[in-house]
């Protein structure tokens, strides 16, 4: 599985960004290969409106299958992610990326 985390930093210890649309980065972990990469989303901070769908489109391009975040995307972004068939898990708003991954593995996160 390819898992995307909304994150405020670039490594496993970075805190999860509880926001979806205006998240600073995506930390993307590929379970199959064990590799990870960072997608910079800071430019979306400069959008006055419609940050959610713009970020959703970017994430769609990354071909992740699972999204782990804090509060969950708003309606517009959710409809894009749904169309892309993404599974979304929420409730990781106060964790680090690593803790969020462990919580997901244990089944502690809520499916959106």
């Amino acid at each position: 599985m390819k898992i995307a985390f909304t994150s405020k930093g670039k490594d496993w210890d970075a805190p999860i960004d509880p926001r979806f649309g205006r998240t600073e980065y995506f930390f993307i972990y590929d379970e199959a290969s064990g590799g990870s990469r960072i997608v910079d989303n800071t430019d979306v901070t400069y959008e006055a409106h419609g940050a959610g769908p713009k970020t959703a489109q970017r994430l769609f391009g990354e071909k992740a299958e699972i999204l782990i975040t804090g509060n969950g995307p708003g309606g517009n972004a959710a409809s894009v992610l749904e169309k892309a068939g993404m599974r979304i898990y929420t409730g990781a708003g106060e964790m680090s990326v690593k803790e969020a991954y462990e919580a997901y593995k244990k089944g502690d996160l809520k499916q959106f």
Binding site: P18, G21, G93
Partner: peptide, 12 residues
């Protein structure tokens, strides 16, 4: 509207 949605985004 939009500003309150943005206020809420990320709230614990």
């Amino acid at each position: 509207g939009c500003p309150v949605v943005s206020s809420l985004s990320g709230a614990s």
